[in-house]
C-alpha cells in the first residue's frame, strides 16, 4: 500500500477507571487542527469496559468517528490486551497519524505499537503541525520535542512508514470548546484476542494521590521551591493561594525532600501546567522546571538570588525574601477583598 493511501488522524482516548482523561480531549483538539489541515477525519479509539456511553463526549470534543472496543478484557489497562486492540484498529483503518498521551499508559502502549507496526514514534512532543515541503508542495507532519534535558528542541519526521505516531504530555495541547450535540459516527469494534500472549495480570491497584484537585486544571498556581524551606513555608504559599483562588504546586526539590507530594510537582518529571498566573516562589528555575510551566500566561518570580534562571522566564521578577513578601502580599490582597 502506498503511503499516500494512509488517511485520517487517530487519537488513543485514554480512560482510567472508566473516566476519559483530560489528555484525550487535548489530543482531540490538536488532532482536529491536523486533520483540517490535511482534509482528513479525526477518529478516536476508546478501549475499556462499560465505556461506550462516553463515545459521544469524544465527538463533542472534536472526533468525527469513535471506534469503541468495550469488553471485560479491557477493563484495566494491560499492555498486551490494549496493544492487540489498538494494533487491529490501526491495521484495519490505515491512519496517517496516531496520537497518544505521554502518560504512564501512553508511554507504555505507543512504543509497543510502534515496534509491532515497524513505524516511527516521537515522544513527548510540544508542537505538532502540518508543514509544506518547499520543493514538492506536499503536506508533511512535523513533531517537535525537547531533547538533552530540554536544552535543545528537535523536529522529527517519519517520512517512509505509516502511521506517523507521536505522544504528547498532558497539559501541552489545548482542548476545543465542547460542541454539545455534535454529530459523528460511533462504530463498535470487536477485537480478536490472542489470549496465549496474556502474561501479565493485575493483583492490586492502590490509589496514592493525596490531592483531590489537579494542579494542571488550576487557573492560578503559587509554586514553591527550595527557598520555601519547609512545610511551614508552604503554609504561607497556601494562604496566598487561598486569597487568589488558586492552588499550591511545587518544584522537584521539595518533592524529593519529602515536603510535597509528587502529584503537586511541576516540571519534566512532574506535570506540565499553563495557568493564567504562575507565581514561582524560591524556585531557581532549572530547565527541567521551566519545561513544565513556561507556557503559563503570566509568570511572577520571587527569589533572593538575582541571577536565578527563573527570572529569564518570568514576566515580572522580584528580587527579595519570599518569607516576607508572600505574607505581606496575602494581607494586602485580603484588605482588597474586604473593601
Amino acid at each position: 500500500m502506498d503511503i499516500k493511501d494512509y488517511k485520517n488522524v487517530y487519537v488513543f482516548a485514554e480512560q482510567r477507571g472508566g473516566m476519559i482523561q483530560s489528555v484525550a480531549y487535548e489530543l482531540l483538539g490538536k488532532a482536529r487542527d491536523l486533520a483540517d489541515a490535511l482534509g482528513e477525519k479525526v477518529v478516536a479509539m476508546l478501549l475499556g469496559h462499560n465505556v461506550k456511553d462516553q463515545a459521544q463526549s469524544l465527538i463533542e470534543m472534536g472526533a468525527d468517528e469513535v471506534l469503541v472496543a468495550d469488553c471485560p478484557e479491557l477493563k484495566d489497562y494491560l499492555t498486551e490486551q490494549y496493544s492487540q486492540v489498538v494494533y487491529q484498529m490501526i491495521t484495519a483503518g490505515c491512519p496517517s497519524i496516531v496520537l497518544y498521551g505521554a502518560t504512564t499508559i501512553g508511554r507504555d502502549l505507543a512504543p509497543r505499537i510502534a515496534s509491532r507496526l515497524k513505524t516511527g514514534l516521537t515522544a513527548d512532543c510540544t508542537k505538532l503541525e502540518i508543514g509544506i515541503v518547499e520543493e514538492t508542495g506536499e503536506k508533511q507532519f512535523r513533531s517537535t520535542r525537547p531533547a538533552f534535558g530540554g536544552n535543545l528542541m528537535a523536529t522529527i519526521l517519519c517520512p517512509n512508514t505509516r502511521p506517523q505516531m507521536s505522544t504528547v504530555r498532558p497539559g501541552v495541547m489545548q482542548k476545543r470548546v465542547r460542541e454539545a450535540g455534535r454529530k459523528g459516527t460511533i462504530t463498535m469494534f470487536a477485537p480478536k484476542f490472542d489470549t496465549s500472549k496474556f502474561k501479565v495480570k493485575v493483583i492490586e491497584t492502590k490509589m496514592n494521590c493525596k490531592c483531590a484537585d489537579d494542579i494542571a486544571d488550576a487557573k492560578i498556581l503559587v509554586s514553591g521551591g527550595r527557598g520555601v524551606h519547609d512545610k511551614e513555608g508552604f503554609n504561607k504559599l497556601q494562604a496566598l493561594a487561598d486569597v487568589l483562588g488558586g492552588m499550591v504546586s511545587s518544584s522537584r526539590a521539595m518533592v524529593d525532600a519529602g515536603i510535597m507530594d509528587h502529584c503537586f510537582q511541576v516540571g519534566q518529571t512532574g506535570k506540565t501546567v499553563r495557568p493564567n498566573l504562575y507565581m514561582a516562589c524560591g524556585i531557581s528555575g532549572a530547565i527541567q522546571h521551566l519545561a513544565g510551566m513556561e507556557e503559563s500566561d503570566f509568570i511572577i518570580a520571587i527569589n533572593k538570588d538575582k541571577y536565578a534562571p527563573i527570572f529569564s522566564a518570568a514576566d515580572l521578577g522580584i528580587v527579595g525574601d519570599l518569607h516576607k513578601i508572600v505574607p505581606m502580599l496575602t494581607e494586602r490582597l485580603k484588605k482588597d477583598v474586604e473593601k
Binding site: K118, T119, M153, T155, I156, L157, F311, D315, M328
Partner: peptide
Amino acid sequence: SPTKVWQSFPKQLKAPGEVFEVSE
C-alpha cells in the same frame, strides 16, 4: 530508523520581563 531529525535548534527563550530589586 523510521524517524529522521529534520531540524534541531536551541530552545527560544522569551524576552525577559522586568526585574525589581526594591523594598518588600
